[in-house]
Amino acid sequence: MRHLFLLHRFNLGLLLVLANAALVLFLAAGDLKPVDELAWTDIIGEGGTAALALAWIVLVLRSRPSGRVTHLLVAGLGCLFFSWWVDTLDEFIQLPDTILWDHWLESIPMPIGMLLLTLGIYHWHREQLIISAQMAKREKLFRDYRLFDKVTPLGGADYLRQQLDIALQQARQQQQPLSLLMLDLTDFSAINRRYGFAEGDQVLQAVTQLLLLNLRRHDLLFRLAGDRFVALLPGTGERQAHALGQDLKAAVDHFAYHTQQQGERLQLCATCAVVMATQDNSESLLQRLNLALARARQPPYAHSA
């Protein structure tokens, strides 16, 4: 919070000075209303709106890096706040009828603020298009930040279930095949034990980037749990999915990961399994995929046993 005020001290300081100036101006020109003349519903309505505008400014500043879009949004919201602030002052201080500037103070910042806010939101939209392009292969159609895991960052198991339900329905309607791919790192727990859990998280992040690079545009990648990833492959038959899985496995096997501390080369290894959706719902499909992975993990000689 303190960091926030330091970073935006100019914006917030200007707002504070202007709000104070308005207060001083009102007090100099008019008189305080007696308590029994105050219209409390108006005060709560207008004062509350002003307070909310201030809250929006803080939220915008806290959630966005500084830059043009942020400045536009804050300037717009600042104007709105100022206008509502003057409106609120009006309720407490009675100005003589000869004074007109209080109406200007109230009504001029409002359209300017709306204009700035609109401009800000428009540029925000442009910015979001670019960010969405970067989120390709990780997010589709809808967003819920609670479903994103904090380590990689990919969608987690719940996001996978939701996307899978949608994809299964689409595949059925469009008569398209749909495949799922599961990839699991071999002996990942040993990396955690030997190099620490922070290093393990780094490995997961690196592998996430690697897998994203090797997937196609319309595929989606999730982290199911721990070191197990799932890719949703729309319009893909089992054979093609299998080939893709082999590519992903080869990419992980040949990946030269170096530890953060000593730069030591870690040999990663992955197991991959693929299933194609038939009559499944999302839960049974995931279960089938999990069993396929368990089979793929067994060494070849175990199959004959």
Partner: peptide
């Protein structure tokens, strides 16, 4: 529980 995948992996 809903998060059966955690049991699978761990």
């Amino acid at each position: 529980p809903r998060h059966i995948e955690q049991y699978w992996v761990h």
